[in-house]
Simulated scan of single mutants.
Amino acid sequence: MATPRHEFYETDENLTLSIFDKGAEPEQVKVSFEPRKFFYSHGDKSLVLEPLKGQIDVEKSSFTVGKVKIEVRFSKMAQGRWGALTGDAPDPLAAFPTSSAPTTTTVRKQRKNWDGITTEILGQDKLLTGDQDPNAGGDAAVNDFFQKLYADADEDTRRAMMKSYSESGGTTLSTNWDEVGKGRVEVKPPEGSEWKKWAA
């Protein structure tokens, strides 16, 4: 059996082998890939490369039959230059018998579903209604609380609430008519605040 002329060039990821066998019939060409072995035969020509200088990915390696040459593409399992087709150089993957080529894994950070989290938390805690806790749900709950208080109050209590609220500029709300009815209710701004009357 004759050995056909061949040559190669390589990158860190791949090695391309050209086998010069002019007029080769694609149906009669036989090629086999193994991790450290390559075999080619056609008619009375054959080429066996063993052991390959590095390990190849059999699934990703391929070949095409042209009019002048057969082009074989080896996909390297580990990046780097071989410098030769065959040789007993230590297999860079020998230390990783259970692993395929070392790969860089990009971990995608999962985005939090804040709407779902909020819904879950709100579902766990029963919201207090206005009459249970006037601070429970902000202004709406406070308004509900005072509306209910006003609706259930007697006439004197209602008058005390209206008079104290309006005369104090909204800073005081009293239900005690005996106290409120004695005179004008003073403005009592929160501590650290200053009351200013805006000109109309």
Rank of each mutant, 00 (worst) to 15 (best):
N176S: 06
D156A: 11
F20C: 04
I121F: 01
R5D: 14
A141K: 09
R111I: 15
K126Q: 06
N14H: 01
K67Y: 05
P102E: 09
G170I: 02
H6E: 08
M77F: 12
L122G: 03
G183E: 02
S99D: 08
G80W: 13
E13N: 04
V142N: 11
Q124D: 05
F8D: 05
L49W: 02
W114A: 05
A141I: 02
G192A: 04
Q28Y: 13
Y150N: 06
K22V: 12
S61G: 09
G66P: 00
I70Y: 08
L127G: 09
W198G: 07
V31L: 00
A160D: 08
D154T: 02
P35F: 01
R108T: 14
D125V: 11
E179C: 03
Q28S: 12
D133E: 09
Q132T: 10
K182M: 09
G80S: 11
D12T: 07
G192T: 03
S61W: 07
G23R: 06
G23F: 13
E120T: 03
S174M: 04
S99K: 01
G181H: 05
D115L: 09
E10Q: 08
D139S: 10
F39D: 14
K22S: 14
G130T: 11
M161W: 06
E186L: 12
T104Q: 11
V29W: 03
Q28R: 09
R36S: 01
K22C: 08
A84W: 08
K109G: 15
N14A: 04
V65Y: 02
S168Q: 03
M1Y: 11
L17H: 03
T86V: 12
D139V: 14
S41W: 05
K53C: 15
P102H: 06
L17S: 00
A78V: 07
N14D: 04
L17C: 02
I19P: 02
E155P: 02
N143Y: 12
V72A: 04
L127P: 05
V48F: 04
F8T: 07
A89G: 15
V185S: 00
L93S: 14
E194H: 11
D156M: 07
Q55I: 07
N135D: 13
K37Q: 12
G43L: 13
A151M: 09
N143S: 14
P4T: 10
S164G: 03
I19R: 06
Q124P: 04
L15D: 02
R158Q: 10
I121S: 01
A84T: 10
E71Q: 09
D133Y: 08
V29P: 03
P26A: 04
F8H: 10
L93V: 01
F145T: 08
A89C: 12
G170Y: 03
D12G: 07
F74W: 12
A101H: 15
T104Y: 10
R158E: 00
T64Y: 12
E191L: 08
T175C: 11
